[in-house]
Amino acid sequence: LQAFIKTLTGKTFTVEMEPSDTIENLKAKIQDKEGIPPDQQRLIFAGKQLEDGRTLSDYNIQKESTLHLVL
C-alpha cells in the first residue's frame, strides 16, 4: 500500500509498504528516502504516536492514509 508522510514544514512524500510492516520498518524507509535517522522520527496517525514494535494494521493504516512526521 502507498501512504503519505507529511512533515511539519508541509512537505509530503509517499512510501510503499505492507500492512504487516512494523513502524520500525516504516521509519527505515523514511530514512532511505529522506535521510532522517529513525531515532529522530515521531510518527503520528489519528492523533496517536506510533510505537516501533506495532504494525500498520495494528493502527488500521490503509492505503493513501496520511501520517504526520514530527522531528
Rank of each mutant, 00 (worst) to 15 (best):
N25W: 10
Q62P: 12
G35C: 04
P38K: 15
L43R: 00
L8G: 11
D39G: 11
S57M: 12
Q40C: 09
F45G: 02
I44T: 10
K63P: 15
Q49A: 11
A46D: 14
P38E: 07
V70K: 06
Q49P: 11
D58K: 02
S20K: 08
Q40T: 08
G35S: 04
R42T: 14
K29P: 01
D21T: 05
P37N: 06
D52T: 05
K63S: 15
E18D: 13
L43I: 12
P37K: 06
D21W: 11
S20N: 13
L1F: 15
A28D: 06
T9L: 09
H68F: 14
T22A: 03
F13G: 01
S20D: 12
Q40M: 11
K11R: 14
Q49G: 06
T12R: 07
N60P: 04
S20M: 10
P38C: 08
T66N: 05
T66G: 05
F4H: 12
T55N: 05
M17H: 03
E16G: 07
K11Y: 15
E34I: 15
E34G: 06
P19R: 09
N25T: 14
S57A: 14
I36Q: 02
S65I: 13
A3H: 05
T22M: 05
L56T: 03
G53R: 09
G47F: 04
I23P: 01
Q31Y: 15
I5D: 02
I36W: 14
V70L: 14
I36T: 08
D32R: 12
D39A: 13
H68C: 12
G47W: 04
L8H: 14
F4C: 09
E51I: 08
T12K: 07
E34K: 08
E64G: 15
A28V: 11
K11N: 07
K48C: 07
E34D: 04
P37R: 08
L50P: 02
Q40I: 11
G53T: 09
F4I: 14
E16L: 12
N25R: 14
M17V: 15
H68V: 14
I23K: 00
I30A: 00
Q41M: 13
I5E: 02
D58G: 03
Q2R: 14
L69H: 00
T7W: 07
Q40F: 09
